[in-house]
Amino acid sequence: MSTGYSPCGPDAARLAYLDLMREIEDFYYREADLLDERDYDPWLELFTEDVLYWMPMRLNLPWEERAQDITSEEDTAWIHDDRATLEKRVRQIQTGIHWAEEPLSRVSHLITNIRLPAPVSVLPEGASVTVKSRFFVYRNRLETETDVLVGRREDLLRRLGGELRIARRKIVIDQSVLMAKNLTVFL
């Protein structure tokens, strides 16, 4: 590793990368806050108009078939939403009579292990980057009802109007039989 900083040398690229990573991390922490503080309208704005919000299912398969243990986009899924459906989910909670979330659950999103599988240092307008992360989501509702949902996210983030937007989200949960009675919490 070199010590001296040069505005156009490898250190500049590294600094740009760190800067982008910070921006991405901050994006996820803000998203978690919006969700956990029930600020759903600005949360919706984090998605592009053409977003695919997709939560495949998991299968128990032999070792040789392990690559297929996440259901494909042409299979059934837990969730397979476009932007309009995502918006309907928010509107349903906001009716105040969506009994599954009325009264609201208490939720904390912990987002960790944020990583760019193919590191980039700059993300110009219109460009996209794949970001992998883990989620640990704690949900508690009414008295003692508790769910812990853990898994991976694989997002495609796109820069639009200077801001990061989610153009695609794949949510891979580490359960085959879902142990929560419903999925009313956004992951």
Partner: peptide
């Protein structure tokens, strides 16, 4: 899928 299942906007309330 937006109707039924654990994430189905109809079925959630049944459960």
């Amino acid at each position: 899928l937006r109707y039924s299942g654990p994430a189905g906007m109809t079925e959630q309330d049944d459960m």
